Amino acid sequence: MNNVARIMGIPFPKITMEQTLELLGKVIDQDQAGLFHVVTGNPEIVMSCQNDKQLRSIIDEAGLITADGIGIVMVSRIKGGHLPERVTGCDLLIKMLEAGNRKKWSFYFLGADEVTNRRASEVITQTYPNVSVLGGHHGFFSEEEGLKIVEEIRSLEPDVLIVALGAPYAERWIHKHKSSLNAKIAIGVGGSLDIIAGKVKRAPEIWQKLHVEWLFRLINQPSRWRRQMILPRFAIRAIFFKESNK
């Protein structure tokens, strides 16, 4: 299929951030039945899918997979897939808040610690006054508390459910409860609430344009080095991976 680029078997649609926002806007406007699950696919998720059949099934059932990271985009171009640009969870969240401010969308924010979750909601309310923040909850909850959270989200019926529980746990949680959440769209956004709340500093724009945001994070959070080691392993495996045409 010419409209997708396959990375280790995972089909990434060849769409830009603008096209992604247009698609998600239509999902909200059309008020279709069922939750539209957006997976921000990074190298970690792609690698995990190679050995985790359940996760691969969740990804296959998602409504949309975006290229979360320059590594995904670069591998696609080396292999002739030519993804147009990265569509990261953090960037997509900001763009959706901007669009939501114009169109008066409603959001629910799940994830991060209690203080960070509350601060992120405060910043969003101040920055995007036309966005309806229906509620939120920190990401450290028991199974019993999780069921209460699901019920709260179901009763509030947000246009967009933002899940910042980390990958791939966010994807598993969304999929497990998707029939009960009563939201129009659910997106896993990694540590984006930490950035909005000011707990974690995002790389300056010049670092982002040079595609070395990962290096900025590593310098500022040296404890991430083990996690960052997946990037060269992903690049080598993905480049030499024999893709199916299916």
Results as ranks from 00 to 15, higher is better:
Trp173Lys: 04
Thr20Trp: 05
Ala238Asn: 00
Leu181Lys: 03
Gly136Ala: 09
Lys201Arg: 15
Leu55Met: 10
Asp113Phe: 15
Leu215Trp: 04
Gly135Leu: 11
Val38Tyr: 09
Ile196Ala: 06
His37Val: 03
Glu152Phe: 02
Gly81Lys: 02
Lys242Asp: 09
Lys14Cys: 01
Trp173Ala: 06
Tyr169Asp: 09
Pro129Val: 07
Asp194Pro: 06
Ala203Gly: 06
Lys201Ser: 15
Trp214Asn: 00
Cys90Phe: 15
Ile206Cys: 05
Leu55Ile: 08
Val133Arg: 06
Leu83Val: 08
Met74Tyr: 13
Ala62Ile: 08
Ser142Cys: 06
Phe216Asp: 00
Asn130Ile: 02
Ile70Leu: 11
Ala238Met: 01
Gly188Asn: 07
Phe240Trp: 13
Ser192Met: 08
Leu21Glu: 11
Val200Glu: 11
Pro43Val: 04
Glu144Cys: 10
Ala99Pro: 01
Arg202Trp: 11
Ser121Val: 13
Leu35Thr: 05
Ile219Trp: 14
Gly135Asn: 11
Arg118Cys: 04
Val87Glu: 10
Arg237Lys: 14
Val38Glu: 12
Ile195Cys: 12
Gly166Asp: 03
Trp214Tyr: 07
Lys178Met: 15
Phe109Asn: 11
His177Met: 08
Ile153Ser: 04
Phe12Asn: 07
Lys209Gly: 05
Ala238Pro: 01
Ile58Asp: 05
Lys199Leu: 13
Val123Thr: 09
Pro222Gly: 04
Gly81Phe: 03
Arg224Leu: 14
Asp52Thr: 08
Arg237Val: 03
Gly136Ile: 02
Trp214Phe: 02
Ile230Leu: 14
Gly190Leu: 02
Val123Arg: 09
Met47His: 03
Met47Ile: 11
Ser106Asp: 11
Leu181Pro: 02
Glu143Ile: 13
Lys79Leu: 11
Val87Cys: 10
Asp194Cys: 08
Ile65Ala: 07
Glu61Ala: 13
Met229Phe: 05
Ser180Phe: 13
Leu64Trp: 04
Ile70Trp: 14
Ser244Pro: 11
Gly71Thr: 00
Glu44Val: 06
Val4Thr: 15
Asp159His: 10
Asp68Ala: 03
Gln54Cys: 12
Ile174Gln: 00
Tyr108Gly: 00
Pro43Phe: 00
Asp91Met: 02
His175Met: 12
Arg6Tyr: 14
Phe109Lys: 12
Leu93Trp: 05
Pro129Thr: 09
Ile174Met: 00
Val123Pro: 04
Leu92Phe: 01
Trp105Ala: 07
Met8Ala: 07
Arg86Phe: 07
Pro168Lys: 03
Ser106Met: 10
Met74Arg: 14
Glu98Pro: 05
Ile239Thr: 09
Ser132Gln: 15
Glu98Ser: 10
Gly188Cys: 04
Met96Ile: 10
Ile45Thr: 07
Gln50Ala: 10
Leu24Thr: 04
Ile219Ser: 12
Gly188Val: 10
Ser192Asn: 14
Asn3Val: 09
Ile72Ala: 00
Phe216Ser: 00
Ile195Ala: 06
Lys103Trp: 03
